[in-house]
């Protein structure tokens, strides 16, 4: 059964509130998981487990958070910046993420800012509604 975007957002919010010990108000579509919401690496797995349960979907970790694989590839990073090839790879692997701002200054340290609540909602939407 198709779910509305608002319904998906509410359930994603619940998963994030429980996984990260947040208040409801903290979870906005623009909030970044690491910078704004304080997620650490193990929290990502916690979030994945909670999303799988809440939406009855399978979430391969590298699909939702593929940036790690890109960063570890020598061709995709040069001088602290993601290369053109790396950006192409990110775009292909992260269709649920808005990369327009990142492209202007593809600093590897800013890659964490790509993980927003909105990106998760987008991802779940494609999984749930196909």
């Amino acid at each position: 059964m198709a779910m509305s975007r608002d319904e998906i957002f509410e359930q994603v919010k619940e998963a994030l509130v429980d996984a990260l010990g947040l208040d409801d108000d903290d979870v906005t579509p623009e909030a970044t998981l690491m910078g704004d919401l304080g997620a650490e690496s193990i929290d990502f797995l916690d979030i994945v487990f909670r999303l799988e349960k809440a939406f009855e979907i399978k979430v391969p970790r590298e699909e939702l958070f593929p940036a790690e694989a890109v960063l570890n590839h020598p061709e995709f990073v040069s001088g602290g910046k993601v290369t053109a090839a790396g950006l192409a790879e990110l775009k292909a692997k992260m269709p649920h993420t808005d990369l327009s701002g990142f492209e202007a200054d593809p600093d590897v340290n800013k890659i964490a800012d790509l993980f927003t609540v909105d990106a998760i909602v987008n991802f779940v939407e494609t999984k749930v509604n196909g």
Binding site: I42, L45, D46, V48, F49, E52, K53, R61
Partner: peptide
Amino acid sequence: MESIAPEAAS
């Protein structure tokens, strides 16, 4: 066991 994956378990 709640969930188990290659990287972790809850």
